[in-house]
C-alpha cells in the first residue's frame, strides 16, 4: 500500500510555553484532498507550519510519503515534493512576478506533472500579462494566483493551501476553487485549510475539524455534509 502523502500522529506543538496542538493526528491519502477546518485559533495554520518545518513539534510524528520529517528544516522538506500556499499569500513583494516563480522552480522526480513558468502562465494568463511587475503591485487575487503558481513551480506531490480564499472577492474565490479542483483532478494531494466551509465541503474528499488544538472530527466529507450538527457544534455555523 502506498504511504500517505502526509501523516501527523499524536503531534504536540507549542509557541513558547503555550501549547497549540494536542495530540493531533490525521492523514492525507495520495491524490486526495483533505479539508482542514476550524474556528480562528483552532490550530489549523500551526498544523501547516509543523508540516512544512517552520515549527518543530515537541512530540509526535510527521511523515511525508512515508519519510519522517518532524524535525527537518523547511528547505529539506521542500525536497520531498511539498509546497505551501501560505496564509496571507506572502509573495516576495520586491521580486517581479517572473522572479517569484523562478526562485521556486524545482524539477520533479515525477515527470507526470512538470510545472514551468510557461505552464503556470497558461493556467494564470493574468500573471503572464504582469510578469515584469513587482509582486507588491498585484491585486489580492493576483497575489493569490502568484502564491499558487509559486507553489506549483516546485512541482509538488503534496500541496498545502492555507486559507487561499481569505480576503478575496466572491468571483475570485470561485476562480481559486476551480483552480484547486483542476489540481486535484491532475492527481495532486492537497490539504486545504479554510474558513470558507462551503468551498471546502465542495472540494474535499475528507474533512478534519480542529477545535482548540485537538481533532474534533475526522472522516469523509460526505459524512459531515449529512450531519449539520458536527459543523454547528465545532464551528458555530448553521
Amino acid at each position: 500500500m502506498a504511504p500517505d502523502a502526509l501523516s501527523l500522529a499524536d503531534v504536540d506543538a507549542f509557541y513558547g510555553d503555550g501549547q497549540v496542538l494536542h495530540k493531533v493526528s490525521f492523514s492525507v491519502g495520495e491524490g486526495r484532498l483533505l479539508g482542514l477546518i476550524g474556528r480562528n485559533g483552532a490550530g489549523k495554520t500551526t498544523c501547516m507550519n509543523v508540516a512544512v518545518g517552520l515549527l518543530s513539534p515537541r512530540a509526535g510524528r510527521v511523515e511525508m510519503f512515508g519519510v519522517d520529517v518532524a524535525r527537518t528544516a523547511p528547505e529539506e522538506i521542500a525536497q520531498h515534493g511539498v509546497a505551501l500556499v501560505p496564509q496571507g499569500r506572502r509573495v516576495f513583494k520586491s521580486l517581479s512576478v517572473r522572479e517569484n516563480l523562478s526562485v521556486a522552480a524545482r524539477k520533479s522526480k515525477d515527470v507526470r506533472s512538470f510545472w514551468t513558468i510557461d505552464t503556470v502562465f497558461d493556467m494564470f494568463p493574468r500573471l503572464k500579462e504582469r510578469h515584469n511587475q513587482p509582486a507588491a503591485l498585484l491585486s489580492g487575487g493576483e497575489q493569490q494566483m502568484l502564491a499558487i503558481g509559486r507553489a506549483l513551480m516546485g512541482n509538488p506531490r503534496l500541496l498545502l493551501m492555507d486559507e487561499p480564499s481569505e480576503g478575496l472577492a466572491p468571483q475570485i474565490v470561485a476562480d481559486v476553487g476551480r483552480t484547486i479542483a483542476r489540481l486535484k483532478a491532475d492527481g495532486l494531494s492537497i490539504v486545504l485549510v479554510e474558513q470558507n466551509i462551503k468551498l471546502t465541503l465542495d472540494l474535499a474528499d475528507d474533512i478534519v475539524v480542529l477545535n482548540s488544538g485537538s481533532v474534533a472530527f475526522a472522516g469523509p466529507s460526505t459524512e459531515i455534509k449529512m450531519d449539520d450538527a458536527v459543523i454547528a457544534r465545532h464551528l458555530g455555523v448553521h
Binding site: 517552520l54 528547505e75 521542500a78 525536497q79 505551501l84 506572502r90 526562485v103 516546485g154
Partner: peptide
C-alpha cells in the same frame, strides 16, 4: 521563512 519553505537554502 517562506523562502526556506519554497526550497531556497
Amino acid at each position: 521563512p517562506i523562502a526556506r519553505v519554497v526550497g531556497i537554502r
